[in-house]
Design a protein around this nucleic acid. Structure first.
Length: 897
RNA sequence: GGGCGGUUAGCUCAGAUGGUUAGAGCGUCUGCUUUACACGCAGAAGGCCGGGGGUUCGAGUCCCUCACCGCCCA
């Protein structure tokens, strides 16, 4: 691990260190929360991935963010728990296994329920640990000893307890109602599990003759003519003049020959089609509601298998629904009742899992009565209030409005699924007395009549019912004596993608409050979707997915994590490109090499004592970099507290690359060469603190460097922890702010930049030293003390420091870096005319600026209304500008003399 | 139909409570084996912050409006 400095590889090799480091962390028990009564516990539960899933970039993103937050809190000393878990993912997993069965030429019905469930468990045993291993490769510092599965005994008990409580309150009920049905999956779906897709279709205009006057008719428009077999009414808007006198009359339903009423309903859009809507309460949600309002009967013409039922009449009974569509259209055509057919683009609901067109139909299902947001005691009402009154903070804020909007339109949740994989609904029916009841523990006999002839409900619960309990079911609820529940509930943060705000986040809030009386978490942090370089959603069918494991291998884990979480704001989608990955990898390598330099430079020195806390450095450069470090420390902690991880990382990147590497290290080299030992301790200090600050985002490279570094420097009296991941997260020391060093170094750096600029402009080779003289104008000691740095970094030699009164021959170039004037002779390269022109242009710029600031300060409104410090800043600026102008004017006067 | 985003450098994106001359990465151009790093160093070019209106001493930032792109819900 610790090798001689000169054998540290020139490039950071992520693959060579990551596995070993992760193993060390885990073996050392760092992922398990450490008690600390004086600190607030921090807890995140991992959104449980599908148990048979494979890690994709969405997981990589969510894990990177959660791990960063977790590591930050852990380093801050908070008892920290990141609890991992997996979801049985009912319909998704069942679908995968059924597909495998289909390839073997069999199906679940041939197998039977028990054998099928066993088959799924085998599948879980085979693939269920894949994603855990993949999370470990990402560096996820979650406590694997607390790993939970939604079907584990604890969470299962939580599911049953919740169900029984709600059942006994009468909030879970069984009812026959119109629901979304997937004929292929043969199960009910919740509203959320239906995706709508725009498709090309037809709009059929069908004539329904009046019962008492077959010459007159009402024309209805529909995209689904097959459903007309189940029509039980026609609805028009009561104000629609075209249908005055029709409301209350009966029309004759073609083909079927049923008389159905024309009703008036204000929900009808007069502009759509003919303004007359055929009402099929059995197969359309809107129609179902219209039917309820007008007492229309329900006729089910489409069955669970997607074929027509006997109620569709002998001709169509048993026919597949889409075949029926064209057959019905043909028959209507023959009857002369098909007025016309138009092309029509409309959205069609399809099963989220298998893409089959969803059929709304009436079915006996279990529902959770969530109430409405206006009822403060209802489930929806309390979930609404929690966000309105700030018990839960949603980041970014705009998603709070989306959440509330959804709750304000919520309907009862259909929680039963006709699947075999999942939590079987804990209700038992009595074969003798017909009673049924919900039980936490399997009963032996009917609770009403005592008969042993009881049978459990066949349906299972919606997967989201169990994941909705996740923040408390994983911590031991409903066990009252659970320490974890006491410590870590409510969770601190729930971090997930905005795409499951309704599915999951809202359900957790509803069920968490219901079960515990408290919110499940204080904050919700929502991230965006990972898109490809073209901004397209990644999907297997599109073939544009990137495998995070490939990227890990190619760029390193830290680079992938950094690329995924930098340069993006909370809740915004992110395009991932190789550019970003390369840039992040280069950054890891940059730190690696900076560390390589520092380690080489300080190795074997005996003057490093106190490096860990150089509270009052003496040297200007040290005071400057430490002031910058402290400003960074404040900023990073603040940004993290606001969940602005991208900003925090941007600051770290800028500081490490620009301030530390490009300036401080380069200047420190000068001092080290000339025997000034004081730079060494600061180098170590700043590097070490930067590593700590960066560790939550780039855990591996920082650990590897840290180990290498601390092995070679004297340990502070207070000692050092064995790993950076349990080192203290830096907090700023306000005593170290150094505004004078900041402004002085600013002048020094500007001077160096100005000379470099001239060198580039006049093509002076890097190897060629330039003679220079600096008029110090009040900054004599600064220039003298920094003269070596200026000389080396700007490549000027000899460098003459002129006293304020001395004036130099203005031949050559004069650079005005207020208050300094740098004279570069540049004989033979720059003549008088060129220099006059250059200075003239500079003078114009300065004058323009000066005039603008003057104008601003002449504005009484500004001076009286702007904050005093803003006005003061402008005054300072004006002074600087006019000094600069005068200096340029003087030089120009000398030139023309 | 309702709601929410986005529109900033050639490309991809950051820009907290309004306050200098708006930033980064990549790309482009000029130089450079300067003994940590070419996954690098130095320098440079490139922006009426989508259009219009308003509030304000002051607007990329707040308000209104229009246009285009995208997402969610019905």
């Amino acid at each position: 691990m610790t090798q001689p400095a000169n054998t540290i590889p020139r490039a950071y090799d992520a693959g060579a260190v990551e596995e070993r480091i992760y193993q060390d962390w885990w073996d050392s028990g760092y992922f398990v929360p450490r008690a600390n009564p004086s600190r607030t516990p921090f807890c995140i539960v991992m959104p449980p991935p599908n148990v048979t899933g494979e890690l994709h970039l969405g997981h990589a993103l969510t894990a990177s963010l959660q791990d960063a937050l977790t590591r930050w809190h852990r380093m801050c000393g908070d008892p920290t728990l990141w609890l991992p878990g997996k979801d049985h993912a009912g319909i998704a997993t069942q679908w995968v296994v059924e597909r495998a069965l289909a390839e073997e030429g069999t199906n679940r019905h041939d197998l039977g329920r028990e054998a099928f469930e066993e088959r799924v468990w085998q599948w879980v045993d085979l693939y269920g640990n894949t994603i855990d291993a993949q999370h470990r490769r990402l560096g996820a510092s979650c406590d694997w000893s607390r790993l939970r599965f939604t079907l584990d005994q604890g969470p299962a008990r939580a599911v049953r307890t919740t169900f029984v409580n709600l059942f006994e309150k009468g909030l879970i009920y069984r009812h026959e109602r119109i629901i979304n049905w997937c004929p292929r999956c043969a199960t009910a779906l919740s509203d959320l599990e239906v995706d709508y897709e725009e498709r090309d279709g037809k709009l059929y205009y069908i004539r329904y003759p009046l019962a008492n006057n077959p010459d007159d008719f009402v024309t209805v428009a529909t995209t689904r003519p097959e459903s007309m077999l189940g029509d039980t009414g026609v609805a028009v808007h009561p104000d629609d003049e075209r249908y005055q006198g029709k409301v209350g009359q009966m029309v004759m339903l073609p083909i079927v020959g049923r008389e159905i009423p024309v009703v008036g309903d204000t929900a009808i859009e007069m502009e759509f089609g003919t303004g007359a809507l055929k009402v099929t309460p059995g197969h359309d949600v809107v129609d179902f509601e219209i039917g309820e309002r007008h007492g229309l009967p329900i006729v089910n013409v489409i069955g669970f298998d997607g074929c027509m039922t006997d109620a569709a009449g002998p001709r169509y009974s048993g026919m597949e629904r889409f075949a029926t569509r064209s057959a019905v259209a043909d028959e209507l055509e023959q009857l002369g009742l098909l007025e016309r057919v138009e092309d029509y683009h409309h959205s069609v609901g399809q099963c989220q899992r298998c893409s089959e067109v969803v059929e709304p139909l009436i079915s006996l299902q279990w529902f959770l009565n969530v109430g409405t947001h206006t009822k403060p005691d209802s489930i929806a009402g309390r979930a609404h209030a929690a966000v309105v009154n700030g018990d839960i903070e949603i980041v970014p804020e705009r998603f709070g409005r989306v959440y509330l909007n959804w709750l304000e339109n919520i309907r009862d949740w259909c929680v039963s699924r006709q699947l075999w994989w999942g939590h079987r609904i804990p209700v038992w029916y009595c074969g003798d007395c017909g009673a049924f009841a919900a039980h936490v523990d399997d009963p032996d006999a009917c609770a009403s009549c005592g008969s042993p002839n009881i049978e459990q409900e066949n349906d299972v619960l919606d997967t989201w019912f169990s994941s909705g309990l996740w923040p408390h079911s994983t911590l031991g609820w409903p066990d009252d004596a659970s320490d974890d529940l006491d410590h870590f509930y409510p969770n601190s943060v729930l971090e997930t993608g905005y795409d499951i705000l309704f599915f999951w986040v809202a359900r957790m809030i509803m069920l968490g409050i219901e079960n515990t009386g408290d919110v499940p978490f204080r904050s919700v942090y929502l991230h965006g979707m990972v898109l490809d370089a073209e901004g397209q959603k990644m999907s297997k069918t599109r073939g544009n997915t990137l495998d995070p494991l490939d990227l890990l291998a190619q760029y390193g884990t830290d680079a992938l994590r950094f690329a995924l979480t930098t340069g993006t704001a909370p809740g915004n989608n992110l395009r991932l490109s190789t550019d970003k990955l390369e840039s992040a990898r280069n950054f890891a390598n940059k730190i690696w090499n900076a560390a390589r330099f520092v380690i080489t430079a300080v190795e074997g020195r005996d003057d490093l004592a106190g490096w860990s806390d150089p509270i009052t450095p003496q040297h200007r450069e040290d005071r400057w970099i430490i002031g910058r470090l402290d400003a960074l420390t404040v900023a990073v902690n603040e940004r993290l507290a606001e969940f602005e991880l991208g900003e925090a990382q941007q600051r770290l990147y800028d500081f490490i690359w620009n301030d530390f590497c490009d300036w401080y290290i380069e200047m420190a080299k000068v001092r080290l060469r000339s025997g000034d030992a004081t730079a060494a301790a600061t180098l170590v200090h700043v590097l070490e603190r930067s590593l700590r600050l960066l560790h939550p985002f780039m855990p591996f490279v920082t650990e590897e460097i840290w180990q290498n570094l601390v092995a070679r420097v004297p340990a502070p009296a207070s000692g050092l922890p064995p790993s950076i991941m349990i080192a203290e997260y830096p907090q700023a020391d306000s005593m170290r702010a150094a505004p004078d060093a900041e402004s002085e170094m600013d002048v020094v750096m500007q001077t160096i930049r100005a000379v470099r600029n001239m060198r580039a402009q006049f093509r002076i080779p890097a190897g060629q030293k330039l003679e220079a003289a600096i008029e110090t104008n009040g900054m004599q000691s600064v220039v003298e003390q920094e003269s070596e740095a200026i000389s080396v970094l700007a490549r000027v030699e000899p460098l003459t420091v002129l006293h304020a009164a001395e004036s130099e021959n203005p031949a050559g170039v004069s650079l005005v870096v207020n208050p300094l004037v740098v004279r570069l002779p540049l004989t033979g390269i720059v003549d008088l005319d060129v220099e006059s022109q250059r200075l003239g242009k500079e003078l114009d710029d300065v004058r323009r600026n000066e005039a603008r600031v003057q104008q601003l300060l002449a504005n009484d409104n500004f001076v009286s209304k702007a904050r005093p410090e803003v006005v003061e800043k402008e005054r300072d600026r004006l002074q600087g500008l006019s000094e600069q102008r005068q200096r340029i004017e003087e030089i120009m006067a000398q030139l023309s003399a």
